[in-house]
Design a protein around this nucleic acid. Structure first.
Lengths: 219, 219
DNA sequence: CCCCGATTGTCAGCTTGCTGTCAGGTTGCC
DNA sequence: GGCAACCTGACAGCAAGCTGACAATCGGGG
């Protein structure tokens, strides 16, 4: 289990390293944004703990550049204060979880473990249902093996449906997952995304059960 | 699947019980800390939903005493507000997951299921009475194993009858459950739904006891 | 700092199928 | 027999969901 800790405050960084090590991770650590970006882009980590307030290159920017390059390791973001905007920005940048400062090391460890478990320990990078396959490492989508280009939002929608492939997911839940309940969107926004996806993927991939929700067709 | 719901607000408690039951759990419920502790210590539950603000014995104290006694069932904690102190305290006391109030029932159910699954008790949310079976996960209905398509309203009706399989449910109660007493419907609306369901499911599934209500036939 | 293209939310109008109502029938109970 | 509870088929209204167009916004590059 390799972990990367990106944190510029030396005291917190030391604590972080100690706690992660105690939890059984092999820890590398940096306080510099550029270096963090380089490490995350070239090395394979099971979990990254990323502080947003960094010198030289902002944490959010680092995260975005990783995601843009197709890096999908779980990232736990530390925000200075749990402001609403930071949360949204972080989600959009591709963070997997949050922790507002100040926090308890125990909670951080618990969440980090949960993320690693959820990521399946780098195991099944390819998930399939019906004609659709998701490559969770490259954030890639393919229909019957033919790659299809999708946007970040569309990908997150597909990933969520994939994660809940055994049930129809109600629109309310999808809206909440995609945007967070803080900033409301019209229900129609979701329908628009679905429509665009269906045009790209063809019919017979995303199904609707009127009154229940959306699901990935398995046959 | 047995669940224990510990919640002192009667309204929330009722919702909780309804949602968990609908999700296929056998639910026991208490609003008292001492009783909660006793139940959790002596009975085997697949999941416990624990509100922190309790009279007589604080939720956190209950949780700690369970853990001290070696009880390891998954516990989902409801916190009044998602303050980080409360979350940290909860983690230290041995909670497995959190939900800040207010929350969506769907999310609670999803998390409860995740916890149960993680704990190894594969949640086969299948409820049966007579020839009828409800898969509360897929929101699917089957007669003698043969899938039948039902609408959302029809499904909710069946689920409610399933919850109350041991008694006939009076039409007034069904109307209130399906629509809420705000917007009134003619009693006949219900009869129409019943009729449509009977056509789909065949006879011998939904029974009527004149003057008492509807019920699922058990033999 | 501005420009340009890609992404994404909103709007309007449409399709589809669910569902409440109505009218009339049936059943059980006094 | 009469009344009230309940059943059922038909049908129209309506709401959930779909789609194309457009505008706002975002993000990257100069």
């Amino acid at each position: 289990m390799r972990a990367l800790a990106v944190e510029d405050d030396p005291r917190i960084a030391a604590d972080l390293q100690a706690a992660l090590t105690a939890a059984g991770f092999r820890v590398e650590r940096t306080g510099d944004g550029e270096e963090a970006w380089f490490l995350g882009d070239t090395e394979d980590y099971d979990i990254v703990v990323l502080d947003l307030g960094l010198p030289s290159l902002d944490g959010l920017a680092v995260l975005k550049r990783w995601r843009a390059n197709g890096r999908t390791m779980p990232v736990l973001v530390l925000t200075a204060r749990g402001t609403w905007q930071e949360r949204v920005e972080g989600i959009e940048a591709g963070a997997d979880d949050y922790l507002p400062k100040p926090f308890r090391m125990e909670e951080l460890i618990a969440r980090a473990r949960a993320l690693v478990r959820r990521a399946g320990g780098h195991a099944a990078a390819l998930q399939e249902v019906g004609d659709l396959s998701l490559d969770t490492n490259r954030m890639g989508v393919a229909i019957r093996g033919v790659p299809v280009q999708v946007t970040a939002l569309e990908y997150r929608l597909l990933a969520y449906l994939m994660q809940n492939r055994d049930r129809p997911v109600p629109p309310t839940e999808l809206l909440e997952h995609l945007y967070g309940d803080d900033d409301a969107r019209e229900a129609n926004a979701l329908e628009a995304v679905i429509a665009r996806l269906r045009r790209k993927l063809g019919s017979g991939v995303i199904g609707t059960r009127r009154g229940f929700g959306y699901f990935l067709e398995s046959a």
